[in-house]
Amino acid sequence: MKLRESILTALLMAIGYVLHQVTPPIVAGMRPNFLLVMLFLSIFINPKPANALLAGFLGGVFAALSTTFPGGQIANIVDELITSQVIALLVRVTPNLNRQIAVPIFTLLGTMISGAIFLSVAMIVVGALPTAFSTLYTVVVLPTAAINTVVGAILYNLARTALRTVVKF
């Protein structure tokens, strides 16, 4: 992986961390994870496994540093590592799919997968969630997935336009 690609990934993840840090919790200390949008954006730009691993690791550590959810530290790291690899695989196996279609779909799916993994791991680590899994998934994960889908599509187009002048995109 080139240094330029690593720096871009780290920069996107740092921006995601700031967004994650300033987002208030919604239910039971759980907050929408806009860090995921930057994780997915990094993978859409560079879907190589090494980049997905770097982005997933950074995303997991950054989310763990700012989580207010019980057991969220371990859950964030596990969830972001797994989700990053799943999304990178989807991007790599669908190279001919129009990105204007793929980005929103993969962002929606990725956020839903991430939320399910996060809640499952947190439930295993802590023993019980502060509220029912279905409630947390419905009240936090699904609205976050909808928001991430819109934000992801907008940011992808902005990043694509900006990067066109710097590197072949």
Results as ranks from 00 to 15, higher is better:
residue 31 R to V: 05
residue 121 V to C: 11
residue 80 E to S: 13
residue 159 A to D: 02
residue 123 M to W: 08
residue 151 V to Q: 03
residue 127 G to F: 13
residue 114 S to P: 04
residue 69 F to P: 10
residue 3 L to A: 15
residue 4 R to C: 01
residue 22 V to K: 04
residue 71 G to R: 03
residue 150 V to G: 11
residue 96 N to A: 13
residue 87 I to L: 14
residue 127 G to L: 09
residue 68 T to S: 02
residue 61 V to R: 10
residue 162 A to G: 09
residue 38 M to P: 08
residue 8 L to C: 12
residue 103 V to S: 00
residue 60 G to C: 07
residue 80 E to L: 10
residue 134 S to M: 07
residue 38 M to G: 00
residue 157 N to P: 12
residue 145 A to K: 01
residue 1 M to G: 02
residue 55 A to R: 01
residue 26 I to C: 08
residue 131 T to K: 15
residue 148 N to Y: 06
residue 40 F to N: 04
residue 72 G to Q: 02
residue 154 I to W: 10
residue 61 V to H: 05
residue 10 A to W: 05
residue 73 Q to M: 15
residue 158 L to D: 12
residue 32 P to N: 15
residue 20 H to T: 06
residue 92 R to Q: 15
residue 101 I to E: 03
residue 150 V to T: 04
residue 92 R to G: 15
residue 160 R to F: 10
residue 51 N to M: 01
residue 15 I to H: 12
residue 152 G to Q: 04
residue 88 A to I: 06
residue 22 V to Q: 14
residue 60 G to Y: 06
residue 31 R to A: 07
residue 64 A to F: 01
residue 64 A to W: 14
residue 101 I to S: 06
residue 112 M to N: 02
residue 33 N to D: 15
residue 42 S to P: 11
residue 127 G to E: 08
residue 146 A to W: 14
residue 157 N to Y: 02
residue 134 S to P: 01
residue 112 M to P: 02
residue 134 S to N: 00
residue 21 Q to A: 14
residue 39 L to C: 11
residue 120 S to Y: 08
residue 159 A to N: 00
residue 83 T to Y: 08
residue 118 F to H: 01
residue 32 P to I: 04
residue 23 T to F: 06
residue 161 T to L: 09
residue 83 T to V: 10
residue 142 L to C: 05
residue 38 M to Q: 04
residue 110 G to A: 08
residue 153 A to C: 09
residue 169 F to P: 00
residue 118 F to W: 01
residue 10 A to K: 07
residue 10 A to L: 11
residue 108 L to Q: 05
residue 87 I to R: 08
residue 37 V to I: 13
residue 104 P to A: 14
residue 164 R to M: 07
residue 17 Y to I: 12
residue 30 M to H: 08
residue 94 T to D: 09
residue 6 S to K: 06
residue 21 Q to K: 09
residue 58 L to H: 01
residue 20 H to N: 13
residue 12 L to Q: 06
residue 151 V to R: 13
residue 127 G to Y: 15
residue 135 T to S: 00
residue 86 V to W: 03
residue 91 V to A: 10
residue 126 V to F: 14
residue 35 L to F: 01
residue 45 I to S: 09
residue 45 I to M: 06
residue 97 L to T: 14
residue 148 N to W: 04
residue 55 A to S: 07
residue 44 F to K: 02
residue 68 T to H: 14
residue 68 T to A: 08
residue 135 T to N: 03
residue 25 P to N: 09
residue 67 T to K: 05
residue 49 P to W: 14
residue 77 I to A: 12
residue 125 V to C: 12
residue 62 F to D: 13
residue 76 N to Y: 11
residue 128 A to R: 05
residue 68 T to V: 07
residue 143 P to I: 03
residue 152 G to D: 03
residue 84 S to P: 09
residue 9 T to H: 06
residue 114 S to F: 02
residue 96 N to G: 13
residue 12 L to R: 15
residue 63 A to S: 15
residue 123 M to R: 12
residue 32 P to D: 09
residue 41 L to R: 06
residue 136 L to I: 09
residue 129 L to Y: 04
residue 81 L to F: 07
residue 131 T to D: 00
residue 107 T to I: 04
residue 113 I to H: 13
residue 102 A to M: 03
residue 10 A to T: 04
residue 33 N to W: 05
residue 4 R to S: 04
residue 6 S to N: 06
residue 48 K to F: 00
residue 73 Q to H: 01
residue 80 E to A: 07
residue 36 L to F: 13
residue 159 A to L: 12
residue 57 F to H: 03
residue 169 F to W: 12
residue 155 L to A: 11
residue 98 N to L: 06
residue 149 T to I: 02
residue 23 T to C: 14
residue 62 F to H: 03
residue 17 Y to E: 11
residue 55 A to L: 13
